[in-house]
Nucleic acid binder design. Structure first.
Lengths: 197, 197
DNA sequence: GTCTATACACCGATAGAC
DNA sequence: GTCTATCGGTGTATAGAC
């Protein structure tokens, strides 16, 4: 294969270059701060101080840019998750990631976009499956280490943790807080009992 | 107050009329099937067989239409939830509503839109708070009826139920199912023990 | 690599006739 | 109530010079 571009022979900029990263950074900021409606090639260019045309030199289409934005982010997150498996207290670290690196606004936007963009949907599926597998591995190891059994199987616990963390993050951004402390305490106590320290 | 329209003196169509409902129905279908990017006055008009101009006779702006669409829907949902309190097995019925009336695609779109549209955000907050209050009431009553205490306070249980139901609905639409059966069984067993029948 | 310039489509919203 | 017609703005994406 001499050419990477099978769909188009337009000249393209190299992935991973400075501009390439700057454009994805700018796109992420716009998506977080202003939402999907503001995520346009013009605004990205304006934000990082280049001309609009250049966006189409680094990304074939806007949809490509969006998929790449999610892909870059999910790779970083999966790497962080995998590293927790080697740490002393994996469950604490995974819960920290769930609570603090979950930007509900960004996730809402990506979810809505995933319905429309096939490539993004595939990336989202891959991310959910991989991160769940890592969490299940950590939970299973913790159960074995403490010689305990759980009423809820590891995969079920992983779903509860991630979905509650996301819901709390979303509601906090909206300004709703009722019941948050209650459930956080329960989850943290459970983790403490399973992964003492 | 002689005039309802304080922001604009443009002539407006009556809320609740046939066209008014048809437009909101069409808007909902578009949002569910094609996403926010396709939700335009032209497409709504085309879908229900009227001219685009008519949309602006019934709704002052597109944002107004979107807020009204969520409002109409959340009112119906809250009414259904309130009715469960008078039923024989409230917890079963609430869980049914959580699982089956939760359209993850629609909710993703509304959440993303809520970041941009202030009026929609206010409606979303109101809906979350009201529905949580109803759920807490049902759970508290069930605990008293069975003379039980829960490790997790009612508000925490409500958060777990709604957030897990939403996560499962979202993942099912994506085609991810690992762990779903595990957690569903646990929740359903818990409800059965609290609200036997 | 980066630019100017631009084709072309679609959008929100309105004026004013019938 | 519903229509035709339209304005001004913004979007994606490309051609081709430098």
């Amino acid at each position: 294969m001499k050419q990477d571009q099978v769909k188009s022979d337009r000249r393209m900029g190299p992935p991973g270059s400075e501009n390439w990263h700057a454009m994805l950074d700018g796109a992420e900021d716009i998506l977080r701060e202003e939402g999907h409606a503001a995520l346009t090639s013009r605004r990205i260019a304006e934000r990082i101080g280049v001309k609009q045309r250049l966006v189409y030199y680094y990304f074939r289409t806007m949809d490509d840019l969006i998929v790449e934005m999610f892909h870059r982010r999910s790779e970083m997150e999966l790497t962080r998750l995998r590293e927790t498996l080697k740490a002393e207290h994996p469950l604490h670290e995974i819960w920290e990631i769930c609570i603090h690196s979950t930007d509900a606004r960004l996730i809402s936007e990506f979810m809505a976009l995933a319905s429309r963009i096939d490539g993004l949907r595939a990336e989202v599926i891959r991310f959910i499956e991989e991160s769940r597998a890592i969490q299940v591995e950590a939970i299973t190891a913790a159960l074995e280490r403490t010689s305990r059994t759980s009423l809820i199987p590891p995969a079920g616990l992983a779903i509860v943790a991630t979905s509650v963390a996301l819901a709390i993050s979303r509601e906090e951004q909206l300004g709703v807080t009722s019941g948050h402390g209650d459930i956080m305490t329960v989850i943290e106590d459970f983790i403490a009992s399973l992964d003492p320290g």
